[in-house]
Each structure stands twice: as structure tokens, then as C-alpha cells.
Computed example of a mutant assay.
Amino acid sequence: MISHTQAFIPSPPQGVWQVGPVPIRAYALCIVAGIIVAVVVAQRRYRARGGNPEVVLDAALVAVPAGIVGGRLYHVATDYNQYFCSDCNPVDALKITNGGLGIWGAVLLGVLAVWVMMRMRGLPLAPLADAAAPGVILAQAIGRLGNWFNQELYGGPTSLPWGLEIYYRVDPNGSLAPLTGHSTGEVIDVVHPTFLYELLWNVAVFVFLVLVDRWRKLGRGRVFWLYVAGYTLGRFWIELMRSDHATLVFGLRINTITSSVLFVIALVMVYLLRGPRETPSEVNPTQSEVNKSIQN
């Protein structure tokens, strides 16, 4: 048994609380808290750009379910061996409360759903994407706390003073239950808290995006692509530290490769998207002309 004095950061004793027949999951609560923060930040920033903050709420109602589906699809696709093997239960692929949402699947399907909504309303997507980007990465930071409660997404063993203690967790019958059980107090290992590294990195990127946008008055989607570049840069080196199971491609974790590709794409987009910041319009030019014709 490992001494508790080796680590500064303990894991929570449990990540699920049973209230009658209803399980209250810390992972889900962190995601919900992140969504609320992202919406509030995006509304304030979109209003400051001249947009209607109600549009942000409508976009969230579209993006959140699409993002959850996209995030789960990405996770299952990139970690299919956990769900489709001789000893696996494919039904587990549907159990999102057990953790496992790939951020890029969530962003891709979420943005696609919002793009369709905005197009149907005749509104430009770029101002909304730029307004929402800082809140999105702040939400990701909050969501990483859910990984702390789930005792997941950590790195290799360490003797550093901020090492994370990983506990044995068991269910009421004494069977091993890493996600839903309660800690026995026995430490399995002391590891790098890579979830914390990513949390702090995401907060730093949030501050950077807000400051550079305030300084340069960015538009045309450049804040969004700076978010992609900033996040993937951090995710690249954090992925190299993680020791949990992951699908490997050419000997590298798949999220390492995804981060590298998206980082390059993001830098290209930031360079190509030039021009002054646009103002969100409640109607597209075509509709505006129609309205003027009717009035005349």
C-alpha cells in the first residue's frame, strides 16, 4: 500500500451518489455546469458584438444534444476495442454517464447543427463562433473535473508533490467498481494528474482568447480557430503523458494525431481569414432587400 504522504492531491472517495433510485453523477454535473458557463459567456460576448443573446440560447439547445451524440460517436469510433470485442458488451457504447466523450466529435457535430440553424435564420455563423469559443474552452476546463471524480485520464506514476492518488473503489458487495464504487482508502498508485494539466491549460487559453480578441478586435471566425489551435497545442503534449488505454495509429495515440492535424489546419485558417470584425445581422441581405421593397 502506498503512503498518502507521497501525493498532494487526493482523488474523491466517490463519483456517484445515490439519492433514492436516482444516481447523481459528478461527471454529468460538471458537464452541465460547463454548459451553463459557456452559454453565459457566449451571450455576453455575442451581445457585445451587436447580436441578440437569445440566439446563443437557441444555438445551445441545438448544439448540446448534437455535441453529446458527436462526442460519443467519436469516442466509440476511436476506442472501439472497448465496446466491440469478444468479451465486450456493445450496449456499453450507449452508456455516456460512464464517461467517454470525444471533444472533436462534439465540436464537429455541434458546430454543424448550429450552422444549419443559423443558415435557416439567415444569420452568419462566424460572429457566433467567435463569441462562443472562449466559453467553450472554459466549459471544457470545468468538464475535466468530472474526470477527477471518475479517476480517469491520468498519466504515469510520479513522486511530484502534486501527484494524484488513485484509490481502490468497491461497490456495497465489495466488488471492484472504479466508476460507481466508494473508496476503500487504499491507494493503487500516485500518478500525473493530466486532467488537471489540461484544466489549467484550458483556462490559460480562455484568458488568451479574451485578451487577444479585445486587443485585435478579431472576427471572421479567427477567435474560433485560435481556440482550436490553442486547445490542440496543449492536448498534444498532454496526450503524450497519459497512460490510460487508447487506440494507437502508427504507434501514437489517435488523439495525438488528431491534435496535430487540427493544429495545422487551425493555423492556416487564422492566416487566411482576414478582414474587419463583422456585426451579427438578424436578417440576411436578401431578406433585408425584400423588406425594403415591401415598405416602398
Rank of each mutant, 00 (worst) to 15 (best):
P285V: 11
D58C: 02
C88I: 10
F149C: 01
M269W: 04
V76G: 03
V37M: 11
V16K: 00
M1C: 04
W115I: 03
I188W: 09
V268H: 04
F208I: 10
A141S: 14
W215L: 13
G181N: 08
V69E: 06
G100C: 11
R214S: 11
A266M: 06
P124S: 14
P157V: 11
P10W: 00
Y271N: 09
L109M: 14
V111W: 05
R144P: 02
W17V: 13
P21F: 13
I35A: 04
R277H: 09
S260Y: 02
V191K: 07
L109S: 02
I2N: 12
G34C: 08
V40C: 05
F195N: 05
P12W: 05
L153Y: 00
R222N: 07
S281T: 15
N150K: 07
D171L: 02
E165R: 14
G234M: 09
A48D: 14
E54G: 14
F208E: 07
A63N: 07
Y74T: 08
M1S: 12
V39R: 00
G174R: 12
W162H: 08
Y154E: 00
Y83I: 09
L179N: 03
K95A: 13
T232G: 01
A131Y: 03
K95C: 03
E165S: 12
L145H: 00
L262C: 03
P193S: 09
Y27D: 00
D87L: 05
F250S: 13
P193K: 03
L196V: 06
C85P: 10
V187Y: 06
F250C: 10
V191P: 05
C30V: 06
G219R: 05
N291L: 15
T97M: 08
T256G: 11
V16Q: 00
R72F: 07
G146I: 00
A93G: 14
R119V: 08
G100N: 06
L109H: 02
V268L: 12
P21K: 12
G275D: 05
A93C: 10
D171Q: 04
V19Q: 05
Y167F: 15
L123K: 15
G234N: 05
Y167V: 02
V55C: 08
A177V: 05
P285E: 13
R144F: 02
T279G: 09
N173V: 02
S293I: 14
T256E: 13
V40M: 10
K292R: 15
N89Q: 13
R220I: 04
F84I: 14
V32E: 02
G51Q: 09
I188S: 09
A229Q: 09
